[in-house]
Amino acid sequence: MYFSMGSNLKKYWTVLRISWMNGFAYPISFWMWRLRQMISIVIAISMWEAIFSSTERIASYDKAQMLSYIFVSSIVSFIVLSSRTIEVQNVIHSGDLSLYLMKPLNFFFYWFTRDIADKFQNIVFAIGELAFLFVVFQPNLIIPQHWMTVLFSLTAVFGGLLLYFFINLIFSFFVFWIPDAWAPRFLFFIIVFFTAGSSFPLDIFPKPLTDFFMQTPFPFLLYFQTKLWLGQLNLVEMWSGFFMLSFWICMTAGIAYALWKKGVYGYGSEGR
């Protein structure tokens, strides 16, 4: 049992190392990706700076709170929204899945490990970029005063990345039945951009709209984690948020697993 666990860890450690190196295989693409991350933050901060030049408050936010929100949500999005699972649909569509099925690897763990490598890469490079943007824009960053807030926030971030992983797998597994799963994934990205709260907090919208968003899984990718870190949730909101996050993780994991079982059962490995 000990040896089995040790060799398993070694296998996935190797996958992690290879995925990390793969990230640098195309250096220009890699740096352009980093540049894109910075541009999205610059746009969001510039927009809010311009808006607050003519008003004191937007909904319950003043300028410092809003810039703080944008910064923290950017950090969370670097961790949660980076993923390699987009490649799964190509693996299935091209017939390469049969190669994965023959390997002594758990398909879900394999891709989760690759995701983790991607997230590490994002975190390492984002530190420098965010430090640069912090010096330029000098937002008033809110640091939690209590270690429990940090712990809960990190737990919620981990939950968010699990949720994003399973949602991405669900979209990839559609390829078992439809030839092109890119179109529904495109719609998913658009919806996530608007309802996850990456460039603006969701509670600036009218309450019925915010309540509607909160019934979907998307605010539990970024918005919930950011509000938790900023200490803007009371105990009831925090626990109900954790309940919803757990519910959506279980739900998406269950759907992903069911689709995988059904999809692999009828998989013909066409294309190879």
């Binding site: 195309y26 220009i28 693409s29 352009m32 540049l35 894109r36 746009i43």
Partner: peptide
Amino acid sequence: EIDNTIMVYRD
């Protein structure tokens, strides 16, 4: 390499 470069233009 073009994929992220064209997306940088879009951004």
